[in-house]
Structures are given as structure tokens and as C-alpha cells.
Nucleic acid binder design. Structure first.
Lengths: 194, 194
DNA sequence: GACTTATTAGGTCAATCGTCCTAATTGGAG
DNA sequence: CTCCAATTAGGACGATTGACCTAATAAGTC
């Protein structure tokens, strides 16, 4: 059963390298060097590079699902759960400033490559969107899905500019603005996205 | 002087291809096919692929500067100029849904490649940021640069999600939300980013 | 029209890419 | 211990990459 471990190591290294350097720019040689494995050995575990990408996306889907479940556990109220989402920008602040958002940058790259895995990559967005919408719905908001996409939109915009300018103050300021927007959005008298 | 025309054609084709398929994924063969030119001939006009990228960024800086000047001309008030910025999301809607934002996606890619042209690419953001800040300053806002970055952030977030979901309704909704935010931001009694 | 420069065409280069194949090695089952 | 399957190591493949070189051509200039 050593094979399964190797496969996991490959997917883990590929995940990290795809995030840091992009999918197209990461070669088998790069992954092989990271895992300390022979190059040809990849094809015992994966038939092609695209198959590694599939596995990486599957891994991210699993880990994201687990993260959202953990947020559900750790936060009793929908409002505090939304804050957990906002705080992710601070938790991963350094990585985001160095490499951008793993979800957004992968989806954008696969779109440009016209890669068939674009759909599965966008499914990562779906996880966050549906989870966020669930929180807004629990808070009695009128348009939970639109509000979820709005939060997702802001997090993506923050990630892109954080990566471009690498300014922690900007991230902190926009995180606070997100919190303010949430508070305003869940106040009944103000209906939609202000 | 045919040489200058050829160079312009090369840069124009490279600009489009870099946008549509990304910088790393676009080969000399791709550009050559687009311009109908011999591959080896590139090196008369450019010493390397990186030099083509420099020229593409320079071209984008020029064209963006011209666009902003045109917005200044066409719009008498700072408020209407801000709307011109928002409308860009609709004007380029189809391209954004297909390829994302040319500025954001290039900056993100060059960041991952650790390419030296990342700085010049981010300078494209500077043009928009400074121009937006000028409008907020003219409107007597207290933090024009932060507000400029906020608008830039929103446009980037919209571009990423528009590219991911390809949903025109989402873009239209968020454009309207941007306009509402601007109106609230330039109302004196409400200070900063709400 | 001769001459010189600017421009282009076409071919070659080593390096690297993803892919594939086969022999060696490992490790558990009988 | 033996044997068989699982796993790994290592090299070779054709294709493509960015880069470079040189000869042919076009375009002015005198």
C-alpha cells in the first residue's frame, strides 16, 4: 500500500506547485523534484498531466468541504460563520499576496487554456457560494445567492489586488469593509447589496 | 519603414494572444501564425519573448492612458467619469466573461511566473487607481486612494467571477451595486467605504 | 543603375516538454 | 523461502519550445 502514499504525495506537491507557479508552467520535472521520485513513475499513478490536475481539484474540493464543515462547527451563528469566511483572507494573507487566490487563479488560468477541467475548478467556487448563501438564508436575507456571490466577488477582488500590490493594510481595510457590508446587508430595513 | 508596421502588428497580435491564452502558453509559432510572418524574423524586432511582453505592456499603458483621457473628455463631471469606469465592465463584458480582466489576469500570471515584468504590469493598475483617486479627490472625498482601490477591487472581483460563471446578470447586478456604492461614498455624511 | 542599409525568410540549435516502455526492485501471500 | 503482483527507477520517444544564424530580398540613397 505504499502506492497510495506516493500518489497522495504527488497530488499534494502538484497542488502546491500548481498554486505557486500555475498549472501550465509546472512540469513533471518540477513535481518529480518536489516528491523525489522518478519522472516516468508518474504514469503508474496517473495516465496524464490532466489526470493529476483532476486529482488536485478533487483534493481541493474535499479539503474545502472539510474547511466549511469546520467553520460550521466552530461558529454557532451564521453571522460568525460569515466572519470566518472574511478572516480567511487574513489567515492566508501571505500566500494570497504571493500567489493570489488558489481558486480564482486556477479558474482564470484554465479558462485561458480552454481546459476541460475549468468546470470542476469552478465547482470550488460553488462550494463557497452555496455555503455563503446558506448563511444569508439562515439570516433571513431576501437574495442569499446574490449576496453570496457579492462576498465571493469581494474576496476575489481583494485577492487580485493583494497579489498585485502586496499591501497588508489594503487587505485589512477591505476585510473591515466586508464586515461592515455584511452587517448592513443582514439588517432587515436595508434590502439588497448597497 | 515597413519594419515599424511589422513590429506594431507583432505587438498587436501578441497583446491579443497574451490576453486570450496567457503569456506562457502563447508561443512564437502562435504569434507568427497570427501575423503571417517567419518565426526567425521575430528576432530582428525583438531580442527575446520577454521583450515582446515589455512592448505589449508598454502598448497597454499607452492605450489605457489614452482611454482615461478620452473618459476625461467625454465626461464633464467626476461622478460621470466614475460611471465610465463602471461601464467598462459592460463594454468589455463578452471578453471579460471569456478571458477575464486583461490587467488582473496578466498581473496574476506574471506573479506566479516570478517574471520581472510583474512590476510594469502592475503599473497598469496604477493608471486606473490614480485616475479614480483623482475623481474621488475632486468630489471632496476623505480617502480618495482607498476608495479608488475599492472600486478597482470590485472590478477585479467582478471580472474573476464573470469569467468563472459567465453570467451577464451577475455583472449587471454588481455594476448597479458599484454605482450605488459610489453614490453613498460621495455623500459627505457617510465617510469611508461602507 | 550601383550601392548600402533595412527587413525578411528559412533553417538549425540545444533544451525541455508530456508521454511511453521496460527492467529492476519491493513486499506481501502461499 | 518462493512466487507473483505491485511499485519504482531510468531511459528513450517525438514534438515543441525560445533562441540564434545566415542568406535572400526589399528599399532607399547617391
Amino acid at each position: 500500500m505504499r502506492g497510495a502514499e506516493t500518489r497522495t504525495e504527488i497530488v499534494g506537491a502538484a497542488d502546491r506547485l500548481f498554486y505557486q507557479g500555475g498549472f501550465a508552467h509546472t512540469s513533471f520535472a518540477d513535481i518529480a523534484a518536489a516528491v523525489q521520485i522518478a519522472r516516468g513513475n508518474f504514469y503508474y499513478h496517473f495516465k496524464s498531466k490532466d489526470e493529476i490536475l483532476e486529482a488536485v481539484i478533487a483534493r481541493r474540493l474535499e479539503r474545502t468541504t472539510a474547511l466549511l464543515a469546520q467553520w460550521d462547527e466552530a461558529n454557532p451563528t451564521p453571522r460568525s460563520r460569515l466572519s470566518a469566511f472574511v478572516r480567511l483572507l487574513a489567515v492566508n494573507g501571505d500566500k494570497i499576496m504571493a500567489y493570489g487566490c488558489p481558486v480564482g487563479s486556477l479558474a482564470t488560468e484554465l479558462s485561458k487554456l480552454m481546459h476541460e477541467a475549468r468546470g470542476p475548478a469552478v465547482a470550488l467556487f460553488d462550494l463557497f457560494r452555496d455555503w455563503l448563501a446558506e448563511q444569508f438564508r439562515a439570516l433571513g436575507c431576501s437574495e442569499p445567492e446574490a449576496q453570496a456571490l457579492h462576498l465571493l466577488m469581494r474576496s476575489q477582488g481583494i485577492a487580485v489586488l493583494a497579489n498585485a500590490y502586496r499591501d497588508p493594510a489594503f487587505v485589512a481595510r477591505e476585510m473591515a469593509a466586508m464586515e461592515d457590508w455584511i452587517d448592513a446587508a443582514i439588517t432587515p430595513q436595508r434590502p439588497a447589496i448597497p
